[in-house]
Amino acid sequence: MDIETLADNFELLGPWEERYRYLIDLGRQLEPMPEAEKTEQTRVRGCMSQVWLTHEISAESPPKLHFRGDSDAHIVKGLIALLFMAYSDKTAEQIRQTDIKALFGRLGLESHLSMNRRNGFYAMVERIRALAEQPAAA
């Protein structure tokens, strides 16, 4: 499912309870991250929940970035799933062009992007953007 379809689905959902149930379900469908990949290098610093992020760069030209991630908190996992719909298997240029704030705003989830949350999720967005700027992703 691409992010636009998801946003349409999300808008059909009524109260916040349904939106969060849906978000948690998305997290459950996230590509599993092998335990061996959950290292100090892949850990994203957050305040409360644990968050990990790894990536692979495809051999295509221009290359695409594929992400795998996980969290011990269900809602954060759902947010990671959303994030990957927007960012994963995209080129560095596509990642740069993505307005993640506008997208989360449309979903009514913008507060999760605020620094105050300190849930590691904000830091994850920053790390994805930084990875897209690395020479290997160009």
Binding site: Y20, M48, S49, D72, A73, H74, I75, V76, N119
Partner: peptide
């Protein structure tokens, strides 16, 4: 249940 999930809801 993760406390963070609980608090978010």
């Amino acid at each position: 249940v993760h406390p963070q999930d609980l608090a978010t809801l």
